[in-house]
Design a protein around this nucleic acid. Sequence first.
DNA 1: GAACTAGTTGAACGTGAATTCAAATACTCA
DNA 2: TGAGTATTTGAATTCACGTTCAACTAGTTC
Lengths: 201, 201
Amino acid sequence: MAQRKSRTDRRIDLIEAARRAIIRHGIDGVQLSHVAEEAGLTSGAVLYHYPDLSELLVEAQHAGMERFYEQRLRQLATVTDPVSKLVMTIRSGLPTGPLDPDVRLLNELGGAAGRNRVYGVLLTSLYDRQVSMYQSILDTGAALGVFRLSGDSQSLARNLVALEDAYGYRITARHPVIGPEEAAELILSYARTATGNDLVA
Amino acid sequence: MAQRKSRTDRRIDLIEAARRAIIRHGIDGVQLSHVAEEAGLTSGAVLYHYPDLSELLVEAQHAGMERFYEQRLRQLATVTDPVSKLVMTIRSGLPTGPLDPDVRLLNELGGAAGRNRVYGVLLTSLYDRQVSMYQSILDTGAALGVFRLSGDSQSLARNLVALEDAYGYRITARHPVIGPEEAAELILSYARTATGNDLVA
DNA sequence: GAACTAGTTGAACGTGAATTCAAATACTCA
DNA sequence: TGAGTATTTGAATTCACGTTCAACTAGTTC
């Protein structure tokens, strides 16, 4: 028998297992047995904690998103210079490679968000928070006179997040020439014209 | 009994039916019976034409992509002025609204492309072709002295397509403030700095 | 219009997954 | 230690889906 765990511990495990299962089989292709296998449990045990699989999937997506976002914020807090912040943030929004689990998970939501309102709301809320994150970096840099913005900070921030998203898809789809480095450089080229700054640390 | 049709006609119908079924149920959630229902046939009839459902799905995705791309090219051919071309192309790459079937279909591929090589290749090739499309518009405009490009045309084109893609996702996910108009304006703001042109027709 | 061919149906079958639940097991606390 | 509770298992059941195929139907050809 698998190691017995407390309700809360097991639920955390299951959320992790669901994350992996979604990445492996797709948000619409994942099934109870996949999650059970990832968790090293039987289907019955999964059902004991989550009688409704779709609820577990939503929680898994939610947790994955929060983790992704929190991680970026945490990294951001380690520097103060707006230029470093901007460059670091651009890099932290891109997958490390085609297999990056965080981005793979987020990408699963893209299609589903058009069909499922809950996923649409989740994804939209992540986007908006990321926009705010960029916007505050841009505003700070402008206030300090480091950046000379080419437009309103919100529009620029929206475009920056949009670029991240799109290159995330390109990289996970294994574009033969656009990898993490190239994508970062493409976004940076936009960020340079947007801020009027060379963006060299 | 459903109207009897020739092999080729029926296959065309089935590809259309599969397109609708994918949009409704997701690329990983679609099943034989969904396609049959959309086509007004029984599962057996579908299987008679496509013994392997996944092949039909690939064909449906392929057809949808080609249609999307050809449509853009055709529209592009109706004007000659680089400014009009650019503005028109930006608009034609965005969904008309959250329910736009062409973009909904393409979005389904995003997540699947990370798991399925065939979908990855399809999506990558569409991206590259769209980049070429933009690049030739930019290059022409630059040659005519209408555009003063802020960087190499390939990078600018890559970013333009990336922005389209990303806003396609935002719109189908029903972002409360970013609709087709707003997205077009955001991309145009980038295109203006990229071309040094006001882009007013 | 008879023979042939291609397309379609519907029922039968097999498979695999979700669901249910009694029994087993491990932990908690008195 | 022993009673009680929470967690997990595994087997039984049910259900939904894909698959097969004989029969049927509507065209096509001669």
